[in-house]
Computed example of a mutant assay.
Amino acid sequence: MTIEQTRPGTGELRVVALEVADDLSELAAVRAWADRLLLDLPDDLRHDVVTVVDELTSNALRHGSPPRQVRLLRRPNWLCVEVDDACLDPACSEPSMGATPHGLVLVAGLSVAWGQWQRSTGKTVWAEITLDGR
């Protein structure tokens, strides 16, 4: 299910959310959803944002717990990708022994900032991306 809302005020914040089923096969649908919502962006920037969406969602599916939700929050020249899951363990950018760093290292390289909020019911991992070419 997709949820959309716009918050009035300066620079209108548009929020679009997608509930994600507990299945890695959902990643293709999540990528397609994000790609459709970002068609107004240049191809290279849209690709970077979709990659961030994919990496954060993939981490939530592989290491988190349901329920999961992906949100795109957008203002002119700014976008934030947020992914919720119900796992209380913090997201970690350090690879486990013998693993190669991927997800959050890639997210850090494609975003201006990333982080996470711990909640009593899980966490939200987020990444901010500027859309003005800087």
Score class of each variant (00 low, 15 high):
48 D>Q: 14
45 L>A: 11
49 V>G: 06
75 R>P: 08
67 P>I: 06
57 T>F: 01
85 D>E: 06
86 A>F: 04
81 V>G: 07
71 R>G: 03
52 V>K: 07
71 R>T: 06
77 N>E: 15
72 L>F: 05
64 G>F: 12
85 D>W: 08
81 V>I: 11
63 H>S: 12
61 L>R: 01
82 E>A: 11
70 V>L: 15
55 E>T: 01
53 V>H: 03
49 V>I: 12
87 C>T: 00
73 L>R: 12
47 H>M: 10
46 R>Y: 08
65 S>N: 08
53 V>L: 02
68 R>N: 04
58 S>T: 13
58 S>W: 13
61 L>P: 07
70 V>R: 00
56 L>W: 02
59 N>R: 07
71 R>I: 00
70 V>A: 11
47 H>K: 14
57 T>G: 07
73 L>G: 09
80 C>V: 12
81 V>Y: 04
73 L>N: 09
67 P>Q: 03
56 L>I: 00
82 E>F: 00
80 C>N: 10
72 L>Y: 02
68 R>I: 08
83 V>I: 03
72 L>C: 05
84 D>S: 04
60 A>Q: 07
79 L>S: 07
45 L>D: 10
60 A>S: 13
69 Q>N: 00
64 G>S: 12
73 L>Y: 09
66 P>K: 02
65 S>G: 07
71 R>A: 10
72 L>Q: 05
86 A>D: 05
70 V>Q: 03
62 R>M: 14
47 H>D: 15
63 H>F: 15
71 R>Q: 12
45 L>S: 08
80 C>W: 04
62 R>V: 15
50 V>R: 04
82 E>K: 05
54 D>T: 14
74 R>E: 12
44 D>A: 15
73 L>A: 13
66 P>N: 01
46 R>S: 04
78 W>P: 03
81 V>C: 09
68 R>F: 01
47 H>L: 12
87 C>W: 07
68 R>V: 04
45 L>T: 14
65 S>T: 11
70 V>M: 09
78 W>S: 13
69 Q>M: 06
86 A>H: 07
62 R>G: 13
47 H>I: 12
69 Q>Y: 00
64 G>H: 11
68 R>H: 09
83 V>S: 10
79 L>H: 02
53 V>R: 01
87 C>I: 00
52 V>L: 11
70 V>N: 01
54 D>Y: 13
82 E>Y: 00
73 L>T: 04
67 P>F: 00
48 D>M: 10
86 A>V: 03
60 A>G: 09
83 V>D: 10
58 S>F: 12
50 V>P: 05
53 V>P: 03
74 R>H: 04
44 D>F: 14
48 D>T: 11
79 L>Y: 02
68 R>L: 08
54 D>P: 08
86 A>G: 10
84 D>I: 01
54 D>F: 13
55 E>H: 14
68 R>Q: 11
60 A>L: 05
46 R>D: 03
83 V>N: 06
62 R>P: 10
81 V>N: 06
51 T>A: 15
58 S>I: 00
75 R>K: 14
67 P>V: 03
52 V>C: 09
65 S>E: 13
51 T>Q: 14
61 L>H: 03
47 H>T: 15
65 S>P: 00
62 R>D: 14
52 V>T: 08
51 T>M: 15
80 C>Y: 02
